[in-house]
Simulated assay, not measured.
Amino acid sequence: MAASAIMVPAAYAQERDSFKIAWSIYAGWIPWKYVDESGIMKKWADKYGIEVEIVQINDYIESINQYTAGEFDGVVATSMDALSIPSAGGVDTTALIVGDYSNGNDGLVMKDSSDIKDLKGQEINLVELSVSHYLLARALDSVGMSERDVTVVNTGDADIVAAFSTPGVKNVVTWNPLLDDVAKMPGANRVFDSSQIPGHIKDLTVVNTQTLADNPKLGKALVGAWFELMAEMGTDSEAGQEARAALGEASGTDQAGYEAQLAGMKMFWKPADAVAFISSDEAVEAMDSVRDFSFEKGLLGEGAPSADFVGISFPGGKTLGDTDNIKLRFDPSYMQMAADDAL
């Protein structure tokens, strides 16, 4: 897989006029559905003389795998998954849009206890090797414990809520809207959530670096369309409320339900705020923690000798890992253009 993936950028090395971006349902990514169906994407694509197809994929990890295999030019992903799947697989990937970070939407819930130290010797149900697994590691670390002190039980996200409702399952880690469902159950205590590790679980729209280099129009159109919607969606204007209501319905809830999910995220409604965040030392430190976890769990591949295997670049010349193998790039230049009204 890695060998074929490394070939992908060469295949993309050309100027083109049609592109495909994949997305999957989560509060921070579903705005792409509205960007597409409202005509905002077409407006920006027409401005630059290109076509951009926005495609919903029901399986999140599969969407990233398809991007990694070259079937899409971009995809939505968390920073951890962008690192561990395409970048670790040899596909040079650029984080074009930093949309938000989880600020309470991911959490650890315990039954009949509110003390993380009581987890010692217990089982914890979660989606293994996901951001939930990462959150557990940070929660345990916060009280001087480690994963060696507990037993992780791999549980599909579709089964988490039902599992917690049974007597045998006492602890789960999950994300919204499942997190809110679990936390409402009798005896449930939300003991740790992503608001305690701000910036660690980032939601990105990433694109193939070579494709972006050869087709800057794609970057301009995507960033322009995204932040046009954000400028409305983050307000109480009629258009903003209409967008949130539509996205609530599309995600199986309503406007209030969707707004509750947004409340658990630090949304970057303005491009300047996204640029400021990803340029901060905190963003680098958070990614350093994420790459260490990814290496410890074998997510950087069998051939990775250390967390430094995959190089990661940030604004201002900051880097983590091997500078000769930069495969994940946080490049805010297009978001800066949006901030400067220069798209």
Results as ranks from 00 to 15, higher is better:
Lys220Asp: 00
Trp29Met: 11
Trp23Cys: 08
Asp112Ile: 07
Met80Tyr: 10
Met110Phe: 12
Asp292Lys: 15
Val172Pro: 07
Val206Asp: 05
Met41Asn: 04
Phe293Lys: 09
Ile57Asn: 10
Gln336Met: 09
Pro9Asp: 08
Asp254Lys: 00
Gly317Tyr: 04
Glu123Met: 09
Lys120Gly: 02
Met7Lys: 13
Leu136Lys: 03
Ile160Gly: 01
Pro177Glu: 06
Gly311Met: 12
Glu51Cys: 01
Ala27Glu: 08
Ala231Trp: 00
Ile57Gly: 02
Ile30Ser: 04
Leu179Thr: 06
Ser280Ala: 11
Tyr12Thr: 09
Pro271Ser: 10
Arg148Thr: 13
Ser194Ala: 00
Lys120Thr: 07
Lys33Ile: 01
His133Pro: 06
Leu119Cys: 08
Phe227Met: 01
Ser165Gln: 15
Asp180Tyr: 14
Asp112Lys: 05
Arg329Leu: 04
Gln336Lys: 01
Ser114Lys: 14
Ser333Cys: 10
Asp118Lys: 00
Asn171Arg: 07
Phe164Gly: 06
Ala69Ser: 15
Gly252Gln: 04
Glu302His: 12
Ser165Ile: 09
Ala213Gln: 13
Ile201Ser: 04
Gln241Phe: 07
Pro216Lys: 02
Tyr334Cys: 03
Asp308Ser: 13
Lys170Val: 03
Met287His: 12
Leu300Lys: 03
Pro198Thr: 05
Lys327Ile: 07
Gly107Asp: 05
Ile124Asn: 02
Asn105Asp: 15
Gly99Ile: 02
Ala225Cys: 10
Met337Lys: 14
Ala137Cys: 08
Gly257Trp: 09
Tyr48Ala: 05
Lys117Arg: 15
Ala221Met: 05
Val223Ile: 04
Ser289Val: 04
Pro177Tyr: 10
Gly121Lys: 11
Ile201Ala: 00
Ile57Phe: 12
Ala283Asn: 08
Ala221Pro: 10
Asp73Pro: 12
Glu15Phe: 12
Ser333Ala: 12
Ile40Gln: 03
Leu129Met: 14
Ile124Thr: 06
Lys111Asp: 03
Ile57Cys: 08
Ala338Gly: 05
Gly303Glu: 14
Tyr26Leu: 07
Val35Thr: 02
Ala2Pro: 00
Gln122Lys: 15
